[in-house]
Amino acid sequence: MVNPQHRTFLSQAYILLVLLFLYAPIAVLIIFSFNNLRSTSVWGGFSFRWYKELLQDRQILSALYYTLTIAILSSIISAIAGTVAAIGIHRMHPLARRIILAINNVPVLNPDIVTGVSLMTLFTALRLRLGFTTLLLSHITFNIPYVVLCILPRLRQIPKEVTEAAMDLGATPTYVFFHVILPEIRSAIFTGFLIAFTLSVDDFVISFFTTGSGVNNLPIVVYSMARRGINPKINAVSTLLFITVFCLLMIINKRDANIQKLEV
């Protein structure tokens, strides 16, 4: 039998190896984004060369513009629409609620590629030209379900008596919404908004199928560049995306979000 001390050592070494496997590729990617040479394996000194080149790359700047515009618009719209949807769903007849929640889960569970091609088919059937509008509609479509799943658990925590009491005291439904319900779910809405924003910035597959006519987001540009081979500019974009998503995550995590993603 292996003695306990050796076992601890082996366990630690094993975990270290797993972490190394998970982090080394990303670390290499980030390190070489600061390389002065074109190579992504030979170190030629520290420089911001590739970041400067990013600023001159029209394709990347336009992609950055679309990524941010789509992310901001889709997350704001999804947060508002998702709030209305969640309240609507909360008040539904139980059977209807189960059905709509099952539908709500479809974009969450379906492979992105199927969501992507099905939306592409829809837009074509509606004679919409693939581009900004269709990209925005797709992002709203896959964002709302997450917002709904963020808000619903909070709504369930509001005792029915509270809203009823407000009504009995003469509050209108609008008044009840703004003064009773909204304060309770405000933080859940904001969490939903942040998750929607993150998912939107991060999405490649669905965007890939639902955009067109020169409208590309950063992941799409990264993909088309990567298909042509290794390019230090991709390392630089990657590092920036990594930092953005990392910051967003820190914010979401700080807010101590309870996401119940797959409840039906």
């Binding site: 590729p25 290499v28 990617l29 070489f32 993150t198 990264v222 990657s238 990392f246």
Partner: peptide, 17 residues
Amino acid sequence: LPMWINFLLRTYSWMVL
């Protein structure tokens, strides 16, 4: 944490390696 790094980038990082 790595699950939140865009999977495109995670994949690309192996091209580099």
